[in-house]
Write a protein that binds this DNA or RNA. Structure first.
Length: 688
DNA sequence: ATATCCATTTTTTTT
DNA sequence: AAATGGATAT
């Protein structure tokens, strides 16, 4: 491997393989490059000692993990296959798969998704006579999660005084955790906490893991939380070959419990650590970097750092005001079309936004123009009722103790097992100290259940048991088809839909589940089981790749959060308005505002060559038209690096020279159906 | 137990 | 505007 291609601090980060090391790597400073080189260096320089399987590299998302693994294999060949690259959560899940039984969970544990968590919390609230409608279960969940992530394992700790939510959380937490365990599930936070507990309480495991993972690397370190730090320390053992890479200016997950302090006080966790700073940006043109630096400079508390580049000049940042959301999308789509015509590949282009909902208009416009795109994240699909139902069947079949899912599908499609019946069974389960599922098994013996009801319950039980057997034989998609057929799921779904078109949509998403299951089977081979599928589903939010005939190069649409660590030649950062970026509700607390600012910084620094910051003058919110003020972050941009265009201003005269140039390639915007010929913006042509 | 209608409300980001 | 959930009628 050629280390001479690295700059001095990069090289230092690569060759300092022993002992704790903190790499403060600014945006675009070749962070991923350093990590991959470092891994290859470890493999090369220690042929006797280090094997690929002694290395663990932790990334923030599964997507990043896959990409890093690919790069590694490309660089170092097949021997890099043995390097474990994954997220903290995936790593934790893997550990638990082996040894969770030592903590009293069943080996075949399930990972509760947010819906499951909320259902459990609501029930715990009801048990404590807390009105689950007056109080937001979501907030309680956030507080529980915060408590867990800040290291307060099952011991609840009421924070502060007099706040209802703190009190409720204090009450609900133990019940929630018990209920979770009782149904054989863990939540996301447990994926970090329980592995740490395993390492702390079981010396043989501690030995096993610290022996195996002798080199640890953690990317995006600024967004790790305390639980992750604890797990890392336990894994690092006494050897402490830990390399943490991050940038405090890109900390954007504090709302999820991330602690910038992990990076700012790295040395207190790993005394004697060395520190390397990467301040040269290789990604962006000067103008883009100037814009980014100007925005982030306003944050008071940061490790002083100045990113620089030798890629001087560049096209100025386009700050574009559009009349409304639709026009904003139209502008983006047109500009993409124009740039693609100029030779920019679709996969060099990204559209970024603050909230997932903003993708829709852009999607529509791109579809209209026949431009291929891919939406990253946005779990809309798995939120659909019918999809959730199918998944709930999977969950119950894989683990009948999963009460939340059981209650969800026991009467879907309607099979005469109503609320009353389930309420009674639930009471029995409690009284007898057994699971709801077990109580259902005894339903014949309960006096208060009518024979008819008991019989139906019995039939349902048999159905599930029978399919458990079938699923164990494999052919997941095939068996699922059979199941849906047998219970008449499609018919019921269609009957329930308010219109034919919505019925079609619903059935399509059911098909989509089957497709995703099919490609999962194809990928995993014989290893594929219902449980592994479900686990993957909760850990990896990525949708299954869809085969697109029109080539694989597509424009990427995603939230700024999801764009962390990625780069594109062209970036459209849309919705640069107050209440959106920074988001409304984040403007009260100064800390929140600082995080919004960092978010803006992250978005801007994704761009290599050309950056568009767009906004709408009017936006429709909740069915009402609302005027929007430009984002305060736009004010911070140095005037010399931006080019402002206003497509919303009422205009009277002929277009200016600047506008004429700008629109030279955008004629059809004003003559949507025509082949061109417009000279520029005129008032009459504007679509209303 | 199910069907229908009306009122209410809304997630910001995600492993 | 859309979608969820509740209340009401069947």
């Amino acid at each position: 491997m050629d280390l001479s291609k690295l700059n001095p601090p990069q090289r230092e980060a690569v060759i300092t393989t022993e002992g704790p090391l903190l790499v403060l790597a600014g945006a675009g400073s070749g962070k991923t490059r350093v990590i991959t080189h470092r891994i290859v260096h470890i493999l090369n320089e220690r042929p006797g000692g280090a094997l690929a399987r002694n290395i663990l590299a932790v990334t923030f998302t599964n997507k990043a993990a896959t990409e890093m693994k690919e790069r590694l294999v490309k660089m170092a060949g097949p021997r890099a296959q043995g390097v474990l690259v994954c997220t903290f959560h995936a790593f934790g899940a893997e550990m638990l798969r082996e040894d969770i039984h030592r903590l009293g969970w069943p080996r075949k544990f399930a990972i509760a998704d947010m819906g499951d968590q909320l259902a459990l919390i609501r029930r715990a609230m009801r048990d404590h006579k807390v009105d689950d409608r007056a109080f937001d279960a979501r907030k309680v969940l956030t507080l529980i999660s915060k408590a867990k992530n800040s290291g307060h394992e099952p011991t609840p700790k009421p924070e502060g005084m007099g706040d209802d939510y703190d009190l409720i959380t204090h009450l609900v937490y133990p019940n929630y955790q018990l209920a979770l365990k009782a149904q054989g599930s863990v939540d996301f936070d447990d994926l970090l906490l329980l592995p740490a507990r395993l390492l702390r309480e079981h010396e043989d495991l501690s030995t096993k893991y610290t022996r195996r993972f002798r080199y640890l690397l953690v990317d995006e370190f600024q967004d790790t939380n305390l639980a992750q730090m604890n797990l890392l320390r336990l894994l690092a053992g006494k050897v402490r070959n830990v390399c943490a890479v991050g940038d405090d200016d890109q900390a954007i997950y504090s709302w999820r419990g991330a602690e910038v302090r992990n990076i700012l006080q790295f040395d207190s966790h790993f005394p004697g650590s060395r520190e390397v700073r990467l301040e040269q940006n290789y990604r962006s043109m000067q103008v883009v970097l100037d814009a980014a630096n100007a925005v982030i400079a306003k944050n008071p508390e940061r490790k002083a750092k100045r990113m620089w580049t030798d890629r001087l000049g560049g096209e100025r940042v386009k700050v574009v005001t559009c009349p409304n959301e639709e026009e904003e999308a139209r502008f983006v789509a047109h500009e993409i079309q124009k740039q693609m015509a100029l030779g920019v590949a679709a996969d060099d282009i990204a559209v970024l936004y603050r909230t997932n909902g903003q993708s829709r208009p852009v999607e529509e416009m791109l579809r209209e123009k026949g431009i291929g795109y891919e939406v990253v994240g946005g779990s809309e699909f798995f939120d659909r009722r019918e999809v959730k139902d199918v998944i709930a069947y999977f969950k119950v079949i894989a683990n009948p103790r999963d009460e939340v899912s059981l209650l969800r599908i026991v009467n879907v499609p309607a099979r005469g097992i109503g609320d009353v019946t389930m309420e009674r069974l639930h009471a029995h389960a409690r009284a007898d100290g057994i699971s709801l599922w077990a109580a259902m098994g005894r339903s014949q013996g309960y006096e208060d259940l009518p024979a008819g009801a008991a019989e139906k319950v019995g039939e349902f039980l048999q159905l599930i048991e029978r399919y458990r057997g079938l699923f164990e034989e494999g052919r997941l998609a095939q068996v699922t088809r059979q199941l849906l057929e047998e219970i008449g799921f499609r018919e019921a779904t269609r009957a329930l839909a308010p219109s034919i078109s919505s019925a079609d949509k619903k059935l399509k998403s059911v098909d989509h589940v089957l497709n995703s299951l099919e490609s999962f089977e194809k990928r995993e081979g014989p290893k594929a089981s219902l449980l592994t599928y479900l686990n993957r589903l909760s850990l990896d939010t990525r949708q299954e790749e869809e085969e697109v005939p029109g080539g694989h190069r597509r424009v990427t649409l995603m939230t700024v959060h999801a764009s962390k660590g990625l780069e594109y030649r062209l970036v459209f950062f849309i919705g640069m308005e107050e209440d959106l970026m920074p988001h409304k509700g984040m403007q009260g607390e100064p800390q929140n505002l600082e995080e919004e600012r960092r978010l803006c910084y992250v978005g801007i620094t994704r761009a290599k060559e050309l950056l568009y910051l767009t906004r709408a003058a009017i936006r429709v919110k909740r069915g009402k038209e609302v005027p929007c003020t430009p984002s305060r972050f736009l004010e911070d941009l140095p005037p010399e690096v931006v080019e402002k265009v206003d497509l919303a201003a009422p205009r009277t005269g002929a277009p200016t020279e600047q506008e004429r140039n700008f629109f030279a390639n955008l004629k059809d915007r004003f003559k949507p159906k025509g082949a061109g010929g417009g000279a520029g913006p005129t008032p009459g042509d504007r679509k209303v």
